[in-house]
Amino acid sequence: MLGGSIVVMKFIQIKNCYKVYKNGVTAVADLTLNIDKGEFVFVIGASGSGKSTLIKMLYREEKPTRGVVQLGGINVGKLRNRTVYKLRRKLGIVFQDFKLLPKLTVYENVAFALECIGMKNSDIRPKVLKALEHVGLKDKIRSFPNELSGGEQQRVCIARAIVNDPKLLICDEPTGNLDANTSKEIMEVLDTINKNLGTTIIMATHDLDIVKRMKRRVLVLDSGVLSKDYEKGSFRTSESV
């Protein structure tokens, strides 16, 4: 028998976290939450509720003013600027505005993420093709972003995010620019990645229809405070945010 309690380390631990911007705006206040490995978590809330700040703190685009943001045992807030890239290599990030390089093909855009970290060309090719297969774009590798639909562009973005087998996929309103049907397709891709690859996914969104349909854990932010934390499947269609 062990004398004390066993502490299980959560994949993401946020403890009494505050973020106050230089202009005095408090974006996140006393936020405490844990996320397990392999979870799919939605972060919802009105504009200015702190969703994006929370997401940005996870990939260390913003530093918490106070408190702890821990990711896989790494205290993200304590990382020095010049070592942030090491954290980013373990993450995949997807944005609303895709952030694809218009002068590169689909293949090159995805490969870009691996070239940037110095991977060998012979290792890059199979990884890129596998990632593009996951998002169903293997037949478009030679297309340029402007030849693709919005949904396809977002899928390229997802392929780029997962190409380095990240443990965590951070999505900031990935369906914000897409219509309902395309959004549904993107959610299916993310769902498959979560189920098949076991990648933890945190997704900030405004789209309550998606959240209700997916039946996953839902965090509700209100003025920077975690107002509700719905367990998987407990967020009902009738819920108001």
Partner: peptide, 17 residues
């Protein structure tokens, strides 16, 4: 700058950017 932004997000070190 978007290119630099993407490089930072995919984990390029400042030197390699």
């Amino acid at each position: 700058r978007s290119e630099i932004d993407i490089m930072r997000l995919v984990g390029s070190s400042n030197t390699s950017i």
